[in-house]
């Protein structure tokens, strides 16, 4: 069945896909409140969790905000760039 085939392909892709980190980097211009709200909008994080990541970016220069498959990681980066945050993906160590 076509449905079954698609599911198998997805499973195989996932199995081969090394997890990737979505990393947000510090930027002296973006407002802290803006960054926290973007995390809430994109990842659905609670205000507390979003602020924790925002403060990590501010104090440590970067924060890993999500880890998972590459395709979804790229989608998140596209959204983060759409809000003009500095963000990249990296392979997990």
């Amino acid at each position: 069945m076509p449905g079954t085939l698609v599911e198998q392909e997805t499973e195989t892709d996932d199995a081969l896909d090394v997890p990737w980190n979505v990393v947000v980097h510090n930027d002296p211009v973006n407002l802290m409140s803006y960054v926290a709200q973007v995390f809430q909008k994109i990842f659905g994080y609670s205000r507390q969790r979003a602020e924790k990541h925002m403060l990590e970016v501010h104090r440590q220069g970067r924060s890993i905000v999500w880890t998972g498959g590459r395709e979804r990681a790229e989608l998140y980066i596209q959204q983060l760039h759409g809000w003009l945050l500095l963000a990249t993906i990296e392979r997990t160590a």
Binding site: E74, I77, Q78, H81, G82, L84, L86, A87, T88, I89, E90
Partner: peptide, 30 residues
């Protein structure tokens, strides 16, 4: 600054694809 790369140069192939396929969409959004 308005056209950030996907991997910050760590994976040139992925950055190139990003530049070709995603950046035009982001520019249109901006």
């Amino acid at each position: 600054r308005l056209a950030s790369s996907l991997t910050g140069g760590a994976e040139p192939g992925l950055d190139e694809e990003w530049k070709e396929h995603v950046l035009p969409e982001l520019k249109a959004l901006f």
